[in-house]
Design a protein around this nucleic acid. Structure first.
Lengths: 331, 331
DNA sequence: CACCGAAATGAGAACGTTCTCAACAGGAGG
DNA sequence: CCTCCTGTTGAGAACGTTCTCATTTCGGTG
């Protein structure tokens, strides 16, 4: 029912080629023609059909933002939202649209890879299957991996300095005089876990402190798990005086346990988080945390993806965005 | 470069029509043919081209989820995330993909409406321009409006019972013995504001309480604004003993001000929020709030939209999802 | 006024599917 | 053995653009 370029062409007396040009390369069309064409288009309520355009151009100007389903209870947790937001902003600037998908949208129940839609590029964030990525790249679809590292020829991975971030957090606690420092480690991807874990360990070691295995709990990265873990720490006969949590949500849960136990933060227990997600400012006292610049991550991922789409492969295959310790009142 | 249906047809010796059928209506193709076709497809790495399919079918199996840019500082705030999640889940079930967009993606800087992409349907959430909706519907694209009401012929609007929710919140505070009840009203769309506002007023009136204008503050719906507003309330010589906040984020901000002032929640100041967003469980004590079933909202919006797309218009034009008061420890 | 080059326009193939319609194969029934 | 019906298959148009190449128009120059 919608009017097509041919209707417009008929109405204004030009050929469809010229009408097409009026939209895609207006400089090559005379003023007179443009006036007539736009007028005709307006009266016919014409909008160029993106599908037909994509068909011939072999380019949809769509990208996909793919999150792994198991990433978190809520698909769009406070961590990924700002990243998606940055990706959307950057995409809008470049006239791209973005699909938000789960790994499931790209993988059949039987495990087979199946890419439903044509897209010019894909950003995976967090966990991602090498098989899916491989399949995508076989089809010459550019891929950028965010917040994760996979060893694939020429695959651009953007991460943050998890290790250095953890070091700065623990160092900070040490400097504030803490000697019994716990670790609530959320379960993320192996890379992330190991790096943050190692940062904690190395810092203790460098400061001549012994890591107390009873102070170290590996848990799901949820509010509830953080709360539960902290209550366990609080029950120890010699409890830690500070904990480093590997994300803000866990830290918020930990704070709740402390407050419920009638203890003071940071006097009785200092808490440091990781991410600087929106959660860190919701809690009272506000959370000291290791800031990840999610806006930059998202923007960079989008930029690099667009470069790839436009055929400008970047030489670099790893980008590590520095973290920054944000000291607030919880420590 | 990617292989097409013709390559597969050549390789397996069947016509492209039969190959096409093997994917779209497998029941009409013999077992032998299917075996050969799938084998050929696999060896050629063939995937049906969604663009070409959309071209002839006049159907993309894409929908758009459009949020107004000014809705909040973060595009994907804790309120909209669960809704989007539900929409995505429902879409996946029906084999649709979802674009996440801003109003800007659909509106030129000069205010003109411009729908970049072909989509089978659109869900607007929150603020939405009647002009854009009108334009979409002119083009026979089904639209569902979420969390807002617009008076347009046959437009399906899904909202929650803001009024009843507000009543239940204030009623609850009254029953707990509060007589000086403040209102921190975030600025949302007129409908929402008015309904929640009115619920507050009517309840006070019904209970024979006088609304004290000094207890009523209209503010931006942000954490900071909530905090700032509460500190103002705390400075009053006769301060309220409870506040009803028209969203959880504002409530969280208010709680922070209370705690900072060294007062106790709920003993010195009870706080009730609205939404039951993720924030309500992050704060300590956990927030009493009016629950909106966002999962149901999202699911319903998607379901109704798919019905419309499939040509089954629903008779109803307004759906109001009931709220539920969730009593936690902040009141 | 003829000529030239540049700018503007037009004709028509191509993009990769689906779908309609027709043709064909093969088995059942007379 | 012929006819009819059903289940499979194939040919080719159609979907709405863009893009290449050829043609026309036009303004300026000698």
């Amino acid at each position: 029912m919608a009017s097509t370029i041919i209707d417009v062409a008929k109405k204004c007396g030009y050929s469809k080629a010229t009408v097409s040009r009026a939209y895609t390369e207006p400089d090559c069309v005379s003023e007179k023609a443009k006036r007539k064409i736009y007028a005709a288009a307006k009266s016919l309520n014409y909008t160029p059909n993106a599908i037909a355009r994509a068909m011939v151009r072999q380019r949809t100007e769509n990208i996909a933002f793919i999150i792994h389903e198991k990433q978190s209870p809520a698909i769009l947790n406070p961590f990924y939202s700002p990243i998606l937001e940055a990706v959307m902003r950057e995409s809008a600037r470049r006239n791209y649209s973005v699909f938000v998908m789960t790994n499931q949208d790209v993988q059949l129940p039987n495990g087979e890879v199946y890419i439903k839609k044509q897209m010019d590029g894909v950003i995976f964030v967090g966990e991602a299957s090498p098989e899916v990525i491989g399949r995508l790249r076989e089809q010459k679809i550019p891929v950028v991996l965010l917040n994760n590292v996979l060893d694939m020829e020429g695959l651009l991975c953007i991460t943050t300095s998890h290790y250095e971030g953890a070091v700065s957090a623990v160092e900070h606690l040490y400097e504030r005089g803490h000697r019994r420092i716990g670790l609530l480690a959320g379960r993320f991807s192996p890379q992330v876990n190991e790096a943050r874990y190692q940062g904690y360990f190395d810092t203790l070691a460098r400061r001549g402190l012994e890591a107390n295995p009873r102070y170290i709990l590996e848990i799901e990265p949820t509010l509830e798990a953080g709360e539960e873990a902290m209550s366990r720490l609080l029950k120890l006969e010699e409890r830690p005086t500070a904990v480093f949590c590997t994300n803000d949500t866990v830290a918020a849960g930990a704070m709740k346990a402390v407050i419920r136990a009638g203890l003071r933060i940071p006097k009785d227990m200092a808490v440091v988080g990781f991410d600087d997600s929106s959660v860190s400012r919701v809690v009272e006292p506000e959370l000291t945390t290791v800031r990840i610049d999610m806006d930059q991550m998202g923007r960079l991922a989008a930029e690099k993806l667009f470069d790839l789409i436009e055929g400008n492969p970047s030489a670099e295959t790893r980008i590590e965005i520095p973290t920054e310790l944000i000291v607030r009142r919880s420590s």
